[in-house]
């Protein structure tokens, strides 16, 4: 892939809007539905995911390129990546606690939840199957996570309003959230007409 600002811009728009992580690709739905009741928690989760996903894209790419490929152990990819992600989350949690307590108090509670966020593993695997280089892998992690943050933020704003509406009893809670997500996803479908 070519490396120019224009190409990176197109790549960013594609990852954030056209192929939005939650609303189009169905990755990271658990946190998307689980921690989107309030705007602040949604943004906190979004930022924590962005941080981990960018870092994990970087590390898993290196692990694949310099450990798995030379050793012909590509088939251990899933195991290796999930271990790397789990260890990374643990490490970041400990490091943040000691070094940047302010950031830790803001993001700390979301970090353990990220290990089982399928988006992080999903993107790490996609980076390999799509044959991205190191730069594009990191950018892919960053932009996809920003797309996740955007989606979860818009979604949480909508959910805060729904909280006060009068909805049929059967739809209260989860079902209405899913219907809202459907409408949001419908809106994002409009972007798929953009061809670059």
């Amino acid at each position: 892939m070519e490396i120019s600002l224009g190409a990176i811009f197109v790549f960013a728009i594609n990852a954030i809007l056209v192929e939005n992580l939650c609303l189009v690709r169905f990755l990271g739905i658990c946190p998307f539905l689980g921690v989107s009741k309030k705007t602040d928690t949604a943004i906190g989760m979004g930022l924590a995911v962005t941080f981990i996903m960018t870092l994990s894209s970087f590390i898993t790419w290196l692990v694949h390129r310099f450990i798995l490929v030379p050793a012909h152990l590509e088939y251990l990819r899933t195991i290796a990546f999930i271990l790397v992600i789990a260890a990374l989350v643990q490490f970041v949690e400990t490091a943040l606690k000691k070094l940047v307590p302010a950031l830790y108090s803001a993001l700390g509670i979301y970090l353990p939840l990220i290990t089982t966020n399928c988006a992080v593993l999903g993107i790490a695997i996609t980076n390999i199957t799509e044959n991205y280089g190191l730069l594009y892998s990191v950018l892919n992690g960053l932009f996809c996570a920003l797309g996740f943050t955007l989606a979860i933020w818009i979604f949480s704003c909508a959910r805060e309003r729904i909280e006060h509406s009068d909805i049929p009893k059967a739809f209260q809670g989860f079902p209405i959230a899913l219907v809202t997500a459907a409408l949001l996803s419908f809106a994002f479908m409009g972007f798929s007409g953009m061809e670059f």
Binding site: F26, K169, A170, F171, P175, L178, V179, A182, S185
Partner: peptide, 22 residues
């Protein structure tokens, strides 16, 4: 068949389950 439809159908199924449970 699109993602939006997925959310919609799942939402209605869970609503149905909640209705029956109720």
């Amino acid at each position: 068949a699109l993602p939006a439809g997925g959310f919609l159908v799942l939402g209605f199924f869970i609503a149905l389950v909640q209705f029956l449970k109720d």
